[in-house]
Simulated scan of single mutants.
Amino acid sequence: MSFLSRAAPVTRLSIAPARSAVYAASRPALFSTTPQRADKGPIDATKDTLKKADRIVSNAAVKGIEKGEQAGHKIKETFGHGAAKAEHEGKKAAAKGKETAQQAKEKTIDLGEQAREEAEELSGKA
């Protein structure tokens, strides 16, 4: 014990921290389940904000794509039944067009022959 009394003399400074330690221990501790924002720097806060924004935009894009696919399926379903009918009508119209073109060609040939005959008659009269 004599060693302790010689090595550590009692002063006012050594007693003062003991009093403040008692005061600090009696103070109520702060309790929180959420992390403090002060711990994060501006870069980490910005990263978190951008991640949240990216997630929101990605979810909206996925919903938009799904809605587009649903609309595409409905359009195919709606026009799928009409497509076969339209194809049949188109083929009928194409056949009728070919027939009309053939008739026009024949009429052109007939008119050309008539014009040649009249030209011969007029040149023979002249």
Rank of each mutant, 00 (worst) to 15 (best):
L50W: 07
Q103T: 04
E89L: 09
G68E: 06
G80K: 00
S5H: 01
S123G: 05
S123R: 15
A119L: 10
F3D: 13
S5A: 05
L50H: 06
A93V: 11
N59A: 13
E120D: 12
V22H: 02
I75K: 14
V22M: 06
K74A: 13
Q102K: 13
M1I: 01
R116E: 08
E113G: 00
A84L: 01
D39N: 04
A101F: 02
V57H: 07
K98N: 10
L30D: 13
H81S: 04
L50I: 08
E106I: 01
G82K: 08
I43F: 12
A101M: 02
K85W: 01
Y23R: 08
E121M: 07
P28A: 15
E77Q: 11
L111F: 05
S32A: 12
D44S: 12
A104W: 00
K125Y: 09
Y23A: 07
K125I: 12
K91F: 04
A45V: 05
E106R: 00
V57C: 01
P42V: 09
L111K: 06
L111N: 14
E118F: 11
E69L: 15
E89N: 02
Q36E: 13
A7F: 02
P35H: 12
P17C: 00
S2I: 00
G112I: 02
V62T: 15
A101S: 02
I75V: 09
A95G: 12
A25D: 02
E120F: 15
H81K: 07
A18L: 08
Q70A: 11
G64I: 04
H88A: 03
H88C: 03
F79D: 06
H81D: 13
T46W: 03
E118V: 14
E120H: 11
A18W: 09
K76D: 14
A61R: 09
K40R: 10
A94P: 10
K76T: 06
